[in-house]
Simulated scan of single mutants.
Amino acid sequence: MHVSRRALIGGGTGALAAVLLWPSGGRGAPTHYEYTLTDAQWRKKLSPAAYDVLRHEGTERPFSSPLLKEHRKGIFACAGCGLPNFSSATKFESGTGWPSFWAPLKDAVLTREDGSLGMSRTEVHCRRCGGHLGHVFDDGPKPTGLRYCMDGVALSFTPAKA
């Protein structure tokens, strides 16, 4: 499988400071993930809402996630496979109704362009299981200028040990 690797570096408008790792052409998913389950296993493991978001790129209702108001230090991980995706150190209040971060953890996410709904967006997926986490936009705070707008139901939170 040919994989396109393109680092987009910068922190201003229009520059996504992420690594795009997706098969050439950008529409197909990688053919293998480190963590895989059958559809029946995903349905059993996840809540219906998490299954819809992680496995079918759904979106939870804004302002519905308890993680929106999570302000403790800790790690936000993929609810599907447990891979740490974001640190609380990069979380900020975006006012959008979804947990938002200005950067993911290193090697935690994959991104791809999404042209559905008649608009251009960049999807964010878990690197280990391919689960859909949300979208990233270039209207976030410094230092990256990015807003990783994540579905809270796609994440779990583990507080830092005291």
Rank of each mutant, 00 (worst) to 15 (best):
H2W: 01
V3T: 02
R5K: 07
R5C: 00
L8P: 07
L8Y: 14
L8N: 12
G11Y: 08
T13W: 13
G14H: 15
A15Y: 10
A17T: 02
L20G: 09
L21H: 12
S24G: 14
S24E: 15
S24W: 15
R27N: 12
R27S: 15
G28C: 13
T31V: 11
E34H: 14
T36Q: 15
T36M: 15
D39H: 05
W42K: 03
R43V: 04
K44E: 12
K44H: 14
K45F: 00
P48K: 08
P48I: 08
A49R: 11
Y51L: 06
D52S: 12
V53I: 12
R55V: 03
H56D: 13
G58T: 10
G58R: 07
G58F: 04
E60M: 11
P62C: 14
F63A: 01
F63I: 01
S65N: 12
K69M: 05
E70V: 00
H71Y: 06
R72I: 02
R72W: 05
K73S: 13
G74C: 03
I75P: 05
F76I: 08
A79V: 02
G80N: 02
L83M: 11
L83T: 13
F92Q: 14
S94N: 09
T96W: 09
W98S: 09
F101D: 00
W102T: 02
A103Q: 11
L105G: 11
K106I: 03
D107H: 15
A108I: 03
V109W: 00
L110A: 09
E113F: 02
E113A: 12
D114A: 10
G115R: 10
G115H: 13
L117H: 14
L117G: 08
M119S: 09
S120F: 06
E123Y: 07
V124G: 04
V124S: 07
H125C: 14
C126K: 01
H132G: 04
G134I: 08
G134W: 01
F137P: 04
F137Y: 14
D138T: 15
P141D: 09
P143S: 10
T144G: 04
L146E: 10
L146G: 03
R147P: 06
G152Y: 06
V153T: 12
P159M: 04
A160P: 07
K161G: 08
K161L: 10
